[in-house]
Amino acid sequence: MGPFMGSEAVSAGVVTRYQLSTRYEKVYRNVYVPRGYRMTSADKAFAAWLWAARRATLAGLSAAALHGSKWIDAHLPAELNQPHRHKTNGILLHSDALTDDEICVVGGLPATTPARTAYDIGRRRGLKTAVIRLDALMQATDLKPVDIELMADRHRGARGLLQLREAVSLADAGSESPQETLTRLILTDAGLRPKRTQINVFDNDGEFVGRIDMGWDDWLVGVEYDGAQHWEDPDVRAKDIDKQAEYEALGWRIVRVSSDMVRRRPHVIVERTRAALRAAGAPV
């Protein structure tokens, strides 16, 4: 059972007032979840909508979560667009004037459209965070950069548009994790923006070998971000070793990236990628 309104559950006889106070915990006023329930960002969005008596529009990160964006911290506040509402802890309220084509229904809940959501979250301070969030939203929906640019044109003069436009120019729907986004940004900052993301590789017989996170398929140079599972899971590690050998047999040069390199040694990523491209004959 996810979030529900306590008064409605009691009236319907689903729970008693005693059970409500002992077996459930309050998320917001009159909104409860079972004790120990682990709330996702989408759960928190639904709970906030219930708190608003089902009259608000989900916005910002809550709308992004509803659209399927991953990597949203469930500890961040839920976001609603609803003017003239009393504030409450754990909910960020907006009072923007939304046009009809900036609102849609997702899973029965009103939310800002992907384009409007991108416009909102992409203007918030922090370019890297904005790109990560745009990548995730574009990965989850059919949102295109031009859709966000049109929304920005509609709201000329709004705060944060310069960052939004830069974030859109850096965004890529092929990113499958924040670390992949950060890796791509490190390379882009060094003038080595990958030509493609999620590159499918096939052997000489047309059999699928694997998918490379990002790279230059014209030069057969790829960059792979290895998350914790690639180092800690023996089965995954064994498959990685075999796949690396297959890539190399097909002429690929693969630069492998770790979280430590992203956090502390970005120059190593740049140096190794540039060296691989030079070895392949690329004009860098």
Rank of each mutant, 00 (worst) to 15 (best):
I212M: 14
A115Y: 02
V10H: 04
G227F: 09
A64M: 06
Q139E: 13
P114L: 07
L98W: 06
S169I: 11
A249N: 10
R54P: 05
A48L: 03
L250W: 09
R156F: 07
L20D: 03
D142Y: 06
K144E: 15
G126H: 05
E102L: 03
S177V: 12
S11C: 04
S258H: 07
L143W: 00
S7W: 06
Q19S: 15
G90W: 04
H86D: 11
P34G: 08
G36R: 10
Y32V: 08
F46C: 10
H86Q: 13
A282T: 07
E271A: 15
T183W: 00
N81C: 09
A9I: 06
L220M: 10
L50R: 04
L58Y: 02
T57H: 01
L127N: 02
L127W: 02
R85G: 00
L92N: 12
Q198K: 13
A97M: 08
L277T: 07
A282D: 04
I148L: 03
I103L: 06
V105K: 05
R123C: 05
P194G: 06
D96Y: 06
A48I: 02
R237N: 14
Q198I: 11
V262I: 15
V257R: 01
A65K: 01
P3R: 04
Y28K: 05
F46W: 13
V146Q: 15
A118M: 04
A158H: 15
S95C: 06
A63Y: 00
Q198E: 13
I212G: 01
D96F: 04
E79A: 15
A52E: 04
A65H: 00
L76M: 13
R265T: 12
C104I: 13
A228N: 10
S175Y: 03
L58G: 01
L161Q: 12
T129N: 11
D142P: 05
R17T: 10
V236W: 00
D73T: 02
V257G: 01
S11D: 12
L150D: 08
V257A: 03
R156V: 13
I121K: 01
G107T: 08
L161W: 02
A64I: 06
G108C: 05
L20R: 06
R196H: 14
I72W: 00
E232Y: 13
T273I: 14
C104L: 14
A115W: 01
M5N: 06
A245N: 08
P234L: 06
H155A: 06
F208I: 11
A173L: 10
R165M: 09
V236G: 01
L61P: 00
D147A: 14
V131Y: 00
S69P: 08
